[in-house]
Design a protein around this nucleic acid. Structure first.
Lengths: 213, 213
DNA sequence: CTGCATCCCGGATGATACTG
DNA sequence: CAGTATCATCCGGGATGCAG
């Protein structure tokens, strides 16, 4: 019922039977950021048809990966413990894909949840542990994120709060994270616009979040 | 040409555009074991239609994941360095799927390459390092494997060689690896048949390869 | 308004036959 | 052996409808 089978008995085929269908892992990716409502998922996955979203949610639920939770008149979807164990998979996949991520195509947008997971992918806890705790406010295209780094811990949420550095940028954040573009030059050339706080903190940001090809 | 896009700009969507199509990651899995010819891949993926295999190979080649290599009159497919970087993804996926792998269904078969990758998934290098080097010959259903463990290194190949323990079993090897079935009981009940060497070495095998739900 | 279900169509997938 | 060609089928995409 979930996915068509591959006729093989093994861990990888089993996994692909559960989350190998189109869109399935992207739903999991967004739910790794936090519980989401049907409409929120639809907004975060702009090209997904509503019937496909409904079908995937049903399949993922039957597979024990997520739960429908009625929460005060609305329904939210949240990962089960087994679903949350997909985080290493999603991070590994994101790291691999990030390495050959080029410039964005015209129809490609940046969503808050995908950006959040990309930041988690690029996060270097061991580097962060050597640096002071820092809070950033980053607007990456349409995504507004509050990024708090404290020791080896990373917390990315939507919304605002007091921060050490606030900046605005676009898809070029990729070149900052990959090391192609130095933080100083990013500010000089206007690729990153600092709204608040000392621009030097962008160096710390680039050290904390780094993933090279 | 490769995959349809998801309309998003990010590492995970990029990865899924490259290897998210049906069968793609299974081809990668088999090539992680070693270079393979077209016919070998077809045998290892019993249900794949030949046109789909041909299409995937072309797409994966264009994506820079594998190469067609003419090798003395025949063509072999092998992963590029970028393709080999998918190993963490495949192992993470395999580990996740293995945890809820049940009993095999009727049409499900065990192939040498899928078994090899499952063993790599379950391999515990830190445990193996504490144990003497050991060579096993395992026949798991139709798959005949030579398994050599030396310190933190694991080498699984087809074919034969001198071994410390030779045994035969079936899909129940999963219960041995998951810890559901103790090695001693596996031998007593005939689930594992020891062909050569001391049966106690099966304990060492189960310690070396372990992955619980 | 949210949370889906239905309908139709195009393109990807699957089975089989065939060829250099 | 290593694919290509053909055709049927099914899934995914887009628009629309509708109930709580």
């Amino acid at each position: 019922m979930a996915a068509r089978d591959y006729g093989q008995y093994g861990g990888i085929t089993r996994a692909l039977e559960l989350i190998g269908e189109r869109w399935a892992l992207l739903i999991v990716r967004d739910l790794l950021v936090g519980p989401r409502r049907y409409g929120e998922l639809a907004v975060g996955l702009p090209r997904i048809p509503s019937n496909i979203l409904a079908a995937r949610l049903k399949e993922l639920q039957e597979a024990g990966i997520l739960r429908r939770m009625p929460r005060s008149r609305v329904i939210v979807y949240e990962l089960t413990p087994y679903g949350r164990e997909l985080e290493p998979v999603v991070l590994a996949l994101g790291a691999w894909g990030f390495k050959t991520l080029g410039e964005p195509r015209d129809e490609q947008i940046i969503t808050p949840d995908s950006m959040t997971m990309d930041l988690r992918t690029a996060f270097r806890p061991l580097v962060a542990a050597e640096l002071p705790s820092t809070a950033y406010s980053a607007r990456v295209g349409p995504a507004e994120l509050l990024i708090r780094v404290d020791g080896v811990r990373l917390d990315v949420t939507r919304g605002d709060g007091p921060v050490d550095l606030a900046f605005t940028t676009g898809a070029d954040i990729r070149r900052l994270i990959s090391g192609e573009l130095a933080p100083g030059r990013a500010i000089e050339t206007g690729v990153v616009e600092v709204l608040h706080g000392p621009g030097e903190l962008l160096d710390r940001f680039a050290s904390t979040f780094h993933l090279a090809a």
